[in-house]
């Protein structure tokens, strides 16, 4: 039974691992921390899995546990040296769509997002993942109105970072 559950869980996580990788990309600055956070999220997902029981979609449930781990539970285990080229690997622009202005713009945007606070990053992340304000508010535990207010503030803050 446990073996079966394990197999089922790992298969689902393997298929949906992009969500976790994207959270790790936003909340860490180097490959080691990325792997560390991925591991911690996996542990937390596995611990919560018996309670999951398919009430919502596996991916919906993953967003919540992954963000909770990144925002609240995760502690950086060691101070790490920041690898310079890390961002450029993750945020690579596809060659066939290469547009220097657009690429520059995107690079700056990604850098600006990385400078945001933990909660602000969560909002942007859910927005980028095309979640509506209802889901954003439910994930963070705030009202829909407050989620909109906060999102507007985040946009303003991004604007300030981009045009100091």
């Amino acid at each position: 039974m446990t073996k079966e559950l394990e197999h089922q869980f790992v298969t689902e996580l393997e298929n949906n691992q992009n969500i976790v990788h994207k959270v790790c990309t936003l909340y860490t600055n180097d490959r080691d921390s990325h792997n560390d956070l991925f591991q911690e999220i996996t542990i937390q997902l596995w611990k919560a899995y018996p309670k999951f029981r398919g009430e919502s979609k596996f991916s919906t449930w993953m967003y919540r546990v992954a963000l909770n781990t990144a925002i609240t539970l995760y502690r950086k285990s060691k101070r790490r040296v920041k690898t310079q080229d890390y961002d450029s690997v993750i945020f690579k622009i596809k060659a066939d769509e290469y547009d220097p202005t657009e690429e520059e713009q995107l690079k700056l945007m990604y850098q600006a997002v990385k400078q945001l606070g933990d909660i602000e990053k969560a909002l942007v992340f859910l927005y980028l993942e095309d979640k509506d304000y209802r889901e954003i508010s439910e994930t963070l535990g705030i009202t829909e109105v407050n989620a909109r207010v906060k999102m507007n503030r985040v946009k303003k803050k991004l604007r300030t970072i981009l045009n100091p």
């Binding site: 394990e6 869980f9 790992v10 298969t11 996580l13 393997e14 691992q17 992009n18 990788h21 994207k22 990309t25 990325h34 991925f38 591991q39 911690e40 996996t42 542990i43 937390q44 596995w46 611990k47 781990t69 609240t72 539970l73 995760y74 502690r75 285990s77 690997v89 993750i90 945020f91 690579k92 596809k94 980028l128 993942e129 095309d130």
Partner: peptide, 27 residues
């Protein structure tokens, strides 16, 4: 962002499976 998937790392079944038994270091 939504086109990023192909640039993200891909972990295998075994790599993920190994993580299940690692110790948590959560607060």
């Amino acid at each position: 962002w939504q086109k990023k998937d192909e640039h993200l790392p891909k972990l295998s079944f075994n790599e993920i499976h190994k993580m299940l038994w690692k110790k948590s270091s959560s607060i």
